[in-house]
Structure formats: structure tokens, C-alpha cells
Design a protein around this nucleic acid. Structure first.
Lengths: 139, 139
DNA sequence: TAATTATGTAACCGCTGGAGTTACGTCTTT
DNA sequence: AAAGACGTAACTCCAGCGGTTACATAATTA
């Protein structure tokens, strides 16, 4: 299982922004109430998502967050990459023994199949956009 | 990223067993040296893998672990399921607010796409067997 | 211009889970 | 009966996530 719930929270947050898209910014306090967490937690997520050009922040009174792009152009894959990082599989904590033929080559041997699996997951995530999710949520 | 390195360690361990397949059991101490960890860590992994019929343990002197099936019939998908559990994505830690339309429906809306992504990853992992990995490791 | 209300971020705390280790009971072979 | 293997409990250490408070900074607006 993933180490954190940042991905699902990120989808939640961006779906809220998609609902307000083109109308008004949404502040971290409002979002935090929907997610049932602290506003600072939301702002920390937003920092990552702003770096990946998913959202923009507007400072000052009447500020908040808005989508940086159209809901139809933002996919779950991008959200995942922004919040969970590129690496899906955690490798050995300590270096395996180079004395053992398996230990010496396992990292290389395993990298191909794991990369394919990661790409398969990313491709699936890329098929869903925020707009897709929005259509399933009542107005 | 995944919460643990149990999956990659599991692949490592089973590859060692595949190399000895049909010849002799391998003890947890030997495996632990290759993985560079403690024998107990290995035995704990093995408990899960035995439950999923990937390995069998032989007690007593000259005991150890052997594959429960042929290397060509054990896929990375099974190893993943045995060691990381079925759930790939971690959901909200606290329940979202039901007052907000997004909070009230996000879990349901997101479940479909996430399940597809998980299945895509599993399908990719199912395409690699222990035998495939073995052919890439020097004798 | 001053009050209000946002974000940005540091700092700290508590909890959980993975991983490492020791210890010991049990089982099978020799 | 001794040796050497697994099974498992119990303990520790540590990293990372998530929650919280606090405060500097920025932009609106009365």
C-alpha cells in the first residue's frame, strides 16, 4: 500500500477546485473542512501541485486556489506524480550482498518488469480527467 | 511510494529459491545474508508467502524453504499480493465531510478509476515469472 | 491607510508501521 | 541426545505522515 493518502486527498481537493472553476478561488480553510483536516495540510499539498502547474495560488484577502488548467486537461496521473513522486516501488533498504549472484544482480533484473508495471498504472490513471470525475458529482 | 520494501525483498528471496529449485531447501540465515538483513525478517516474509502457497517450509535440521510451485508458474503479481496486500491506494485517514457534495461522493467516484489502475498494474506484474528473472542471472 | 483575510512555512508533537534484534519453544535429522 | 532449522513474541529504533500552533507576508477593501 502507498505510504500516504496524499494522492486521494489531492484528487478530492482538485475536484473541489474543478467545481468552482472559472468562478472564484477556494481557500484552504474551506477545502480543509471538506477533507476533514487542517488547512496547513492542504497548503502543503498545494505547494507540490503548484510546482507541477496543476493549481495557482492567489494571495491576500479573497485569495485562495484555482486550477491552473481546464478540468478536461488534468489527469489522475499528473496528480499522482505531483503528490507521490515518480517512484512507485521501494527498493532494498540496505544493499544486497554482492557475494551472492542473486544479490548482485537483483536490482538490475527487477527494474524492467517494475518499470512496466508502473507505466501500466500511469497509463490507466492518465485515462481519467477531473472533468470525468465532476460529471459523477451532484451539483 | 509503497510503504515498505517487502515486495522487492520477496522477489529477491523467491529468486534464490528458484535457483535451488528441485535440489535442496535454503535456510533463512543464508537468504538473510544475501538480502543483508536479519533471518527473522526473512521468516516473517515467508509466513505470508506460505499462506499464499508460494513457498513451503521444512522444519528441523537440514530444513529451510522451497518453492511450492514451479518458477514458471509464480508471477510477480502473486508476490505483490502476498506481501503488500490487495489495497494499493490509501484512502482518507478521516471521513470527509458529508456536508460538501464532493466530500460526500469522492470515495465512490474515485473507486472505479483507482481500481482500473490497480488492475493495470497487476496485469503487468502477472506477465513476469520467476523463471523469466532467473534467465537473467548468471549461474 | 489600516484592518481583514488569505497564503507560505517553520517548528513541534504524536502515532503508526517497518525493520532489526534477542530470546526461546518446537521440530526433524543424524 | 545433540544439532540446526523454523515460528513467534517482545522489544527497540527510526522515518514519515498528519495535526497543530505560530507568525511573516501579501492583497483586498472599507
Amino acid at each position: 500500500m502507498l505510504g500516504s493518502s496524499r494522492f486521494v486527498i489531492g484528487i478530492h481537493v482538485l475536484t473541489i477546485l474543478a467545481r468552482a472553476h472559472g468562478r472564484h478561488p477556494v481557500c484552504s480553510t474551506f477545502i480543509a473542512q471538506s477533507v476533514n483536516t487542517n488547512p496547513v495540510v492542504i497548503r502543503r499539498l498545494m505547494a507540490n501541485m503548484e510546482q507541477h502547474s496543476l493549481v495557482r495560488s492567489l494571495a491576500g484577502r479573497k485569495g485562495g486556489f484555482i486550477l491552473a488548467r481546464q478540468p478536461k486537461d488534468i489527469t489522475l496521473k499528473e496528480i499522482f506524480t505531483a503528490l507521490e513522486g515518480a517512484e512507485l516501488f521501494r527498493m532494498h533498504g540496505r544493499e544486497p550482498s554482492k557475494e551472492c549472484p542473486v544479490g548482485a544482480s537483483i536490482a538490475r533484473v527487477v527494474s524492467g518488469p517494475l518499470k512496466l508495471a508502473e507505466e501500466a498504472m500511469n497509463s490507466a490513471l492518465a485515462r481519467t480527467t477531473l472533468k470525468d470525475l465532476l460529471t459523477e458529482i451532484p451539483v
